[in-house]
Write a protein that binds this DNA or RNA. Structure first.
Lengths: 229, 229
DNA sequence: TTAGAAAGTGAACGGTGTTCAACTTATAAT
DNA sequence: ATTATAAGTTGAACACCGTTCACTTTCTAA
C-alpha cells in the first residue's frame, strides 16, 4: 500500500515548511539574518533535523533563488503577454525586471548580487530562466532589427546582455542606496533603458564583439600607494 | 617633551596595522572571511584590543571603503590625465572604473554592491570621490554636448549617472559570474559603454527626467503563487 | 616614589553552521 | 505479535563569530 507515497508526501511537506520559514525570514530580514536555528524554531524542529532535507544552508538559498527566478520569469511573462510591438515588449520586460528589484529586493540581491552562495553561479533554474525569457527577448531584439528599429549590425544576444546589464546596474544603485540624496532610482533606470535603446537605433559601427576592447584594456595601476597622509 | 606626540604616533601606527591586516585578509579571502580574531592574530594583539581603535567591525570596513574610493579616484584620474577630448576622457574614465572592478573585486563589492555595511550609504569619503570625479566627468559630458558629440537635450549629471549605472551593471555581472559560460565580461562592459555613448548622440527626445516614468510603473504582481508543482 | 590614567587581556555571553552518537518511531519480516 | 531494521529526530558538542567587561599590566606626570 501507499505508505511509501505517504512518506514522500510528508517529506515534501516538511521540506516546503523549511522553505516557507526560510523565505519569511529572508524576505523580512534579509539573507544575513536567516539562521538554521531560527528556521528550526519556526517549524518547531531541532536545527539538526533540517540537515536531512538540505545538506547545507546554501542549498536552502539555492532553492529560494530558484523560486526567485520563477517569480521573475512569471512577472516578465505577464507584463509582456499580449504586447505586439517587439520594442515595447523589450521595454516592458526590462522594466518588469527593474520593478522586480524593487518589490523583491532580497530575492534580487540573492539572485544577481550576492557572491556568498557560490553554487548559484552554475544554477540550474537560472538556466531555465534563460531559456524561456532570453530566447523570447533575443527574438524581440532580432525583430526590432528586422523592422529597422534597431541597427542591423547588432548581435541580438549581446545586445540583450547589454540591456540586461544596464538595468541591473540601475537596480543595484537603487538597492544599495548609493545615490546622492534626491536622486530618483526610477528615473535612473528609465534613463538607462531609454539611452541603451536609443543607442541601438544608431548604426555608427558598434561591433558588439571584444574587437577594439584591447585598445582600452591598459589596466589601471591601482594596487600601489594604499597609504596616504 | 613630545610624549603625547609619540603616543599619538603609536596609536596611529597600530591603527594602520589593524587596517593592513584587515586589508590583506579582505583582499585575499573577501569580506565574509575577515574576523576580528583573525585580524588580532595577525597583529599579535588580543581581539578586544582592536575595539579601542575601531568600536565596531563595520568601522574597519568603512575605513577600507574609504581607501577603495581613494584608489579608484586616483586610478581614474591617472588614466584621464592629459587626454584632451572630453568624450575620450569619459570613455577612459569609465573604462578605468570597470577595470577597477576586475583588479579590486573585493573593494568594488564592498563599495558598490554590499549592503551589509549600512554605514557606507552615507559615506563621507564617497562624497569626496563624488566631488573630485563626478564634477570633472559632468563637465566632460557638458563639453561633449557643446561640441555636438552628445545630444543637447541631456542633463549632464543624469547622463553621467546613466553611464555609471551601465558600467556598474556590466562590472557586477562580470564579478558575480552570472554570465553564461563563454560570455566575455570585457566585451559586455565595452558594449554597454559604447551603446550608452551612442545613445547620447541621438537626440530623439530622451527627457532624462522621471516624466514618462509613471507610464511604465504598473508594478509587476509577483508576490503571489510562490508554490509551484 | 606613587597616584592615576591608559592600554591590553582573558574569560565570558549569546550567537553562528555543522556533526554525530544516541534515542524514538514506524515499517517489514518472521 | 514480536522482532529486526530502517528512517527520522534530537541534544550535546565543536569550532567559530562580534562584542563586553572586570581585571592586570604598563607607562606618565606629579
Amino acid at each position: 500500500m501507499g505508505t511509501k507515497e505517504r512518506h514522500e508526501r510528508d517529506r515534501h511537506r516538511i521540506r516546503q515548511g523549511i522553505l516557507d520559514a526560510a523565505r519569511e525570514l529572508f524576505i523580512a530580514e534579509g539573507y544575513q539574518q536567516v539562521s538554521m536555528r531560527k528556521i528550526a524554531d519556526r517549524i518547531e524542529y531541532s536545527p539538526a533535523a533540517i540537515y536531512s532535507y538540505f545538506p547545507r544552508k546554501d542549498d536552502i538559498f539555492f532553492a529560494l533563488a530558484a523560486e526567485g527566478f520563477r517569480i521573475l520569469a512569471d512577472g516578465v511573462s505577464a507584463v509582456v503577454a499580449g504586447v505586439e510591438d517587439p520594442l515595447e515588449r523589450l521595454r516592458r520586460g526590462l522594466w518588469a525586471f527593474y520593478q522586480f528589484s524593487k518589490s523583491n529586493p532580497e530575492y534580487f540581491a540573492l539572485m544577481f548580487l550576492d557572491r556568498s552562495v557560490p553554487s548559484l553561479s552554475q544554477d540550474f533554474e537560472r538556466f531555465e530562466f534563460f531559456q524561456t525569457i532570453t530566447a523570447r527577448a533575443t527574438a524581440d531584439v532580432q525583430a526590432c532589427m528586422d523592422r529597422g528599429q534597431f541597427s542591423r549590425k547588432l548581435d541580438p544576444a549581446a545586445a540583450l546582455h547589454v540591456l540586461w546589464a544596464g538595468v541591473l546596474g540601475a537596480a543595484t544603485i537603487g538597492l544599495a542606496q548609493r545615490l546622492a540624496p534626491g536622486e530618483d532610482a526610477d528615473a535612473l533606470a528609465h534613463d538607462v533603458l531609454e539611452s541603451l535603446l536609443a543607442g541601438f537605433t544608431t548604426n555608427l559601427g558598434t561591433t558588439f564583439v571584444a574587437a577594439d576592447c584591447a585598445l582600452m584594456s591598459e589596466p589601471v595601476a591601482v594596487r600601489e600607494r594604499q597609504n596616504h597622509a
